[in-house]
């Protein structure tokens, strides 16, 4: 085992260390956290031969650039931000070997919203509540609870790696979906039939006023005058109806209770797909 480091040259918009998130702590209002697209996260870890729950770098809406101060394997899954290694284009969904001094960068075109960079070996970083999932508002999780910044060094314990002649890769492209399956939630019946029609017949998009706590949508206004008396439990994937008639999808770092009607929810797979939408990218809800 040897320890190498990677140095963040440009951090992108919001790059952070994430893992599977925290189980069993929602009772204490501690958000689950963790990778927004668990499928891409698991694939990236699988390609480098790690346990699929190992910590990775998650990039949101924009890639990052970093320098390898030692050789190691890595793989990128999720969004193709126009990734390059030493200025040469590299594919997503493939195991790649980086020599010492290599520079990973990107042109910042974006096919999807989230990319996951897994390094072969163990990424060493800080943990809170038994998870690397970074929660910057609290300073919890990886990288001392902060999003990645220029100059940050990440340590990776890896086996000394030799370049292989062929590389395992996934022979498919993950295509963004234009439809998301909607499941009726506990307060589904606050909508009348006309509003239910609008929900399934008009396009929606995530607005730029969104973050890892929640995605604010713009779409048809589902005007209503329902007020819940009490705050009720919510999970990542729950869809809340605001008094303004707009919707919020609760995400990984989101609250555990809220006072808005829960008209629907997305199951985990649908949430993975939803989390790959870029702001303003149009999609539809379909009734399952």
């Amino acid at each position: 085992m040897i320890t190498i480091s990677v140095e963040i040259l440009k951090p992108g918009i919001f790059s952070s260390i994430q893992d599977q998130g925290r189980d069993g702590l929602a009772f204490y209002a501690i958000p689950r956290g963790g990778a927004s697209d668990l499928n891409s996260f698991h694939l990236a870890n699988s390609l480098v031969g790690n346990d699929i729950h190992s910590p990775v770098i998650e990039c949101v809406q924009m890639g990052l650039s970093l320098k390898f101060n030692g050789s190691c394997y890595f793989a990128i899954c999720g969004s193709d931000f126009g990734w390059t290694l030493n200025s040469k284009s590299i594919p997503v969904n493939q195991l790649i070997h980086a020599e010492k001094h290599s520079v990973l960068a990107c042109e910042n075109s974006a096919s999807m919203a989230k990319a996951y960079i897994a390094f072969g070996g163990s990424l060493k970083s800080s943990i809170s509540y038994n998870s690397y999932a970074t929660l910057p508002a609290y300073g919890w999780g990886g990288n001392q609870g902060k999003k990645l910044r220029k100059g940050d060094l990440l340590e990776i314990e890896t086996e000394s790696s030799k370049k292989l002649s062929t590389y395992p890769s996934l022979q498919f492209k993950i295509k963004p979906k234009s439809e998301i399956y909607f499941n009726p939630g506990p307060e589904w019946e606050v909508l009348d039939n006309a509003q239910k029609d609008l929900l399934f017949n008009k396009p929606f998009a995530i607005t730029s006023e969104s973050n890892r706590m929640g995605a604010r949508l713009k779409g048809p206004a589902l005007i209503h005058d329902i007020q819940l008396t009490y705050s009720v439990p919510v999970l990542p994937g729950f869809i809340q109806l605001l008094p303004s008639g707009q919707l919020i999808v609760v995400l990984e770092d989101g609250q555990t209770t809220g006072g808005y009607p829960r008209i629907g929810y997305l199951n985990r797979n649908q949430l993975n797909a939803f989390n790959q939408y870029l702001p303003n990218q149009s999609f539809r809800f379909v009734n399952r």
């Binding site: 929602a26 009772f27 008396t229 439990p233 919510v234 555990t256 209770t257």
Partner: peptide, 20 residues
């Protein structure tokens, strides 16, 4: 419920009128 650590339960959230 949480303290029973049952394998089928991932999260428990309590509130005024509900336990999720």
């Amino acid at each position: 419920i949480l303290d029973k650590k049952l394998p089928f339960i991932k999260e428990v959230i309590a509130s005024e009128e509900e336990i999720l």
